[in-house]
């Protein structure tokens, strides 16, 4: 049987992992160690499901439906006046969920809090744009990259990708060199669908080398008509490797010893 490759996470993976390797975890400290963070958790009360300090910053896990209220409390009573960043992490393959985070900054205390919540696939999240205007762009980017809908956002539209794009690039199911839609997008846009056979799909593999590609000016140094043969009778050579480095032990030249010397 051929090897089965899971399609729910097509990102880069380690080619070898030791069977006994157990990844350690960054230490999570108790919030009581820092009085300011303890006050923040107290102000949130039961809204904070789980809280700890990780690498100097407070992390608070909340329910996704309470995100607006929690951020409102943090802004109005704890002094977190800036939302530095807001985005998501794709855990669809493992848990069927997205993890959303809001990175907040308190300027007077020089403290940072990360508010984390989880939503199921297809669920929407309430916009925090009325509290922090920076969420306007950040939530649009999250929608563009993950397809997470944001309720009551003033202008939820794709931001980095073109408006007529299909698919959400930062999902783990989306391959890095793009999917089939991506390979036809520019051909369809510039020449039209009827030219698909003439031009062919866009090759988005950055490591691909076509030695006899007439479209690459760098190869020949001067302009040639499309499809012209520039090989000058040269036959295509397969890559050969030096035999001085790679020794072929199947050859008769190698001698096998019958007994131990």
């Amino acid at each position: 049987m051929r090897k089965y490759t899971p399609k729910d996470n097509v990102q880069g993976k380690a080619y070898y992992t030791d069977r006994f390797w157990v990844a350690p975890r960054v230490p999570r400290l108790d919030v009581e160690a820092e009085s300011h963070f303890a006050d923040v958790v107290k102000a949130l009360g039961r809204k904070a499901k789980e809280s700890y300090v990780e690498i100097g910053q407070l992390v608070v896990h909340i329910k996704a439906t309470e995100n607006f209220n929690v951020l409102k409390i943090l802004k109005e009573s704890c002094g977190y006046t800036q939302c530095s960043e807001q985005s998501a992490v794709d855990y669809l393959a493992k848990d069927g969920e997205f993890e959303l985070f809001y990175q907040l900054l308190n300027i007077s205390e020089a403290k940072r809090v990360r508010v984390v919540c989880r939503i199921k696939e297809g669920e929407a999240i309430e916009s925090v744009q009325p509290l922090f205007k920076s969420a306007n762009f950040a939530e649009r980017e999250m929608f563009d990259m993950f397809g997470i809908k944001v309720n009551n956002h003033p202008f939820l539209k794709r931001i980095l990708m073109p408006d007529d794009w299909e698919g959400h690039p930062l999902l783990k199911t989306y391959p890095m060199i793009g999917d089939e839609f991506a390979s036809w997008y520019e051909v369809d846009k510039i020449f039209g669908k009827e030219y698909r056979d003439v031009i062919g799909p866009e090759n988005r593999d950055p490591a691909r080398i076509d030695r006899y590609d007439t479209k690459r000016f760098s190869r020949v140094g001067y302009e040639v008509p499309f499809g012209a043969d520039i090989s000058e009778g040269e036959i295509e050579n397969p890559i050969e490797y030096s035999e001085t480095v790679l020794v072929d032990y199947t050859k008769n030249s190698s001698k096998q010893l019958d007994e131990r010397r």
Partner: peptide
Amino acid sequence: TQGMRPPKGEVYVP
């Protein structure tokens, strides 16, 4: 060949 393997966790560094 394999790259370093940091511990599990998350960090935001400004």
